[in-house]
Design a protein around this nucleic acid. Structure first.
Lengths: 219, 219
DNA sequence: GGCGTTAACTGAACATTGATAAGTTATCGG
DNA sequence: CCGATAACTTATCAATGTTCAGTTAACGCC
């Protein structure tokens, strides 16, 4: 019966294992948010799925917004990792921009629910949306700065592009904003209106990247 | 004292004047939505401002969403009208596209709540989002079809542009999708992240339009 | 004027929500 | 075994969207 102690009690967590419960809550909340949206997902339902009472949730998250916030950071981390991979492997600055765009779109389209959660701010009160770019520190562990981090990477790539001798039509940050807006518009359109008879997806992605690269580079 | 009968009783509406109360509610709701946002505006507060009880509101609107939808149609009518005005007064097809973009952006930025509800799929199940482009009837009185109507206008303008002899890099509907995606990305960025330190708004709007026009026209 | 019909409206209440207070249980170090 | 306390529960709150059952008052008609 000695091995019995290592089996999870299914009810209560062991003494230092609160963080485990915290992650269970996060997973359940993520599932439910994606299934039913933010507003329709109640604290009680999340707690039910985890197998605890509703107030127990407040031991791990200050309120419902904090829960959503934690999920946002989680999703941002994946995207930041993908972007970092490109910066590590692609040398040519111009190619980097294109690859960034492709990665960004592909991330959005292959994680439509998460993208919606984070970038579309669907059904999220305004207080949450605010943190996406707060002060923009470089510390990815701080909560709520993921959006600014991704964007800063893009601006960084564009700055290098300019430093490499390529003339731009706008300052790097303005170029970054324009590019991001175009890509975001593309991704959100596919996600929000999937049943609309859009033109060929590949064509639109390539077209959007071509348009923005052509529009940004001084001819 | 005969004139007294024509004075509004300040409390109850005369027998056939319910529509007056309906418009009072719409006005109060519009003000409150703009002051405090959709979620924070309660039915009771709207009713208070109008000077009636909360249940009285349900005599005129099925629920809170119906209220917002009525406001959306109201404001979308303005956008469609603005686009029509452009089509009527601007002859040059190319200039039309630019003016369309400017009008679209200005509409989105001055009606962020309505824009969110219709184009960002904020709140409430798929019932609303679907009607945004359902078969796209040409009847502007049907609720919720404003979005599709506006898009059709853009494609129409681009088709005329092509018919006038200008070569495009993509089919007109693809061009329309790309342009709309860029504009939509711009507007939704401003709406969803209003406190982000964006570059100058005018510059971004002009830049986005320049980029897409340049990218769409065959050189 | 009196009367019945009914549009316009109210008061009380319901179910559900996010959140808190106060108490309980079980785990662990010593 | 024991005291401390992390982990958790039950009871409860105020606010919200919404409904129900009734009430009031404007109007047409005699």
């Amino acid at each position: 019966m000695t091995g019995f102690a290592t089996v999870l009690p299914a009810g209560r967590k062991r003494r230092g294992e609160g963080h485990t419960r915290r992650e269970e809550i996060l997973q359940a909340a993520k599932d439910l948010f994606l299934e039913q949206g933010y507003d329709s997902t109640t604290i009680r339902r999340i707690a039910d799925r985890v197998g605890i009472s509703a107030p127990a949730l407040y031991l791990y998250f200050k309120d419902k917004e904090a829960l959503m916030l934690a999920l946002c950071d989680q999703t941002f981390a994946h995207l930041i990792e993908a972007v970092g991979e490109i910066e590590r492997t692609v040398a040519d600055p111009l190619e980097r921009v294109r690859r960034f765009g492709e990665a960004y779109v592909q991330f959005g389209l292959s994680h439509p629910d998460e993208y919606r959660l984070v970038f579309l701010g669907a059904n999220i009160p305004e207080a949450i949306r605010k943190v996406g770019h707060k002060a923009a520190t470089d510390d990815p562990t701080k909560p709520g700065v993921g959006g600014a981090l991704v964007f800063k990477r893009l601006v960084g790539i564009l700055t290098e592009l300019e430093a490499s001798g390529t003339k731009l039509n706008y300052p790097p940050d303005t170029c970054g904003e324009l590019c991001w807006m175009g890509l975001h518009g593309l991704v959100s359109a596919f996600i929000l209106k999937p049943e609309f008879p859009w033109s060929d997806r590949e064509l639109l992605v390539k077209g959007m990247l071509d348009i923005h690269l052509k529009g940004i580079l001084r001819t």
